[in-house]
Design a protein around this nucleic acid. Structure first.
Lengths: 246, 246
DNA sequence: CGGTTTTGACATACTAGTATCTTAGTGTAT
DNA sequence: ATACACTAAGATACTAGTATGTCAAAACCG
């Protein structure tokens, strides 16, 4: 009972080229069919709805999305640059396995970048900024109660994103997103334990307080220990899902 | 007198899929036509052989490279993700302007990542590693004497890459490459002053010595001041090349 | 004559089909 | 029985052509 048209893109409903005219030289935001497919597959892979090793055939995807090969192909290429799919030329394309060996380095990078961001945020955050953090925290609390893991993790990301943006470092956030991808995939294999989620929220609250007090060192330490806790027990995961990793 | 076939890719000469069979699951290295075009355009843009604002038409590029639209298109998409070209949907594609406003943040990121790398390198570098650094330094000295700017900058990159790799942080180097792109473009507008090149080499030598002594703090400070010097005088560049920046 | 509308050339986004490479399976010879 | 060569199926990489949106210049109207 395969519902091939499940993800079908409504024909002509996507207003692609959103009037990029304006003044002089506006940075373009391409909203193409390829982008839609990329986003959908990205979410599915990061949320582990598509298991590592799953084959992704161009032909099958064109049918599922109801489009031609080119946009599918572009989406797969971008995903391969993110390390989320492996393309074997003229052979096959598969959802990538989580590279355990790369996770320690990703963690080191993450520490360095988040430290840079929170240092600055703790220095310059305004009351409006704090209010914004509180809003994210509130929504994260609600999602933890509901137990919606996908949304909870998205809110978690949003909190860290907000810190980077308050610091005035949007590029740092883009890099972090890129670096954390494999870590997040591993995290998604941990069971949704309510206690763990509230623990994460508690750590976020400590960070928020330190920022509000403009206590740079306290904020850094709170972030540091938060990040060191967040990393999942890789050895255990590996045993539980042996063929998800390499 | 336009030599359209200048960059033409020799037909069938590129061994694309390099036997990715082997044991079980080898990470693939795609050597496709699209990759070749990407690399060539990448170098041309970063070395400022293609000025910001230059239009890059798919059609013209297909003729220059003697290939079809798809590989050209893929190369342009990848370049746009690197921030090296701006694609205006259904309108046109151009070599991007150097975003002056993003350079300070890039510098901050660079400092954080290079600091992480050199810290570890200074701790664990072996005599073989030091020898490798010396080799890079020697070639950089030679290229400075010759005055080959492109090669000199490539060797400069290689020195920093070596430090990251000795630390065991290949991903950090990948990120640095990505982050430094716009900084490098700005640097390329500085005139090839021999004194400046030898100054850079001198700073590299100080770093090398600190690593060899396993003096972590000295190495970090040397790197720090090296990176702070390397940044070009943006205000002056902007005056000299007003329409290369945004 | 100034401002608005229209129109058409043009560039990218997409569709469709072909070519090439990989790889597993089969058969044969050693 | 094992190792090698051949064959054929299948998937991506590429070619070629169509569709669609953009932008600017010309035409039109007030």
């Amino acid at each position: 009972m395969e519902r091939q048209g499940e993800h079908e893109i409504a024909e002509g409903s996507a207003p692609r080229g959103r009037s990029a005219k304006s003044g002089h030289r506006p940075p373009q935001r391409r909203v193409t069919t390829a982008t839609v497919i990329y986003d959908e597959l990205y979410e599915a892979i990061v949320n582990m709805h598509l298991a590592p090793g799953t084959p992704l055939q161009e032909k099958a995807l064109t049918q599922q999305f109801g489009v031609s090969k080119t946009p599918v192909r572009e989406a797969l290429i971008r995903l391969s640059e993110d390390g989320l799919v492996d393309i074997f030329p003229q052979s096959g394309t598969f959802v990538s396995h989580v590279p355990l060996s790369a996770i320690p380095e990703a963690q080191v990078i993450r520490l360095a970048l988040e430290d840079t961001a929170i240092k600055r945020t703790a220095e310059i955050a305004t009351v409006a900024d704090i209010a914004q953090l509180d809003a994210k925290l509130a929504s994260q609390r609600m999602l933890a109660d509901i137990g919606d893991m996908d949304a909870f993790h998205a809110a978690d990301e949003a909190f860290h994103e907000a810190i980077a943006l308050i610091a005035g470092y949007p590029s740092i956030w883009k890099l972090l997103r890129q670096v954390k991808v494999q870590i997040n995939r591993a995290r998604r294999l941990t069971l949704p334990v309510a206690g763990r989620m509230h623990q994460v929220i508690g750590e976020h609250e400590i960070i928020r307080e330190a920022i509000a007090r403009h206590d740079v060192e306290a904020a850094r330490e709170a972030m540091q220990s938060h990040l060191n806790v967040v990393i999942p027990d890789l050895a255990r995961l590996r045993v539980a899902h042996p063929d998800y990793f390499v």
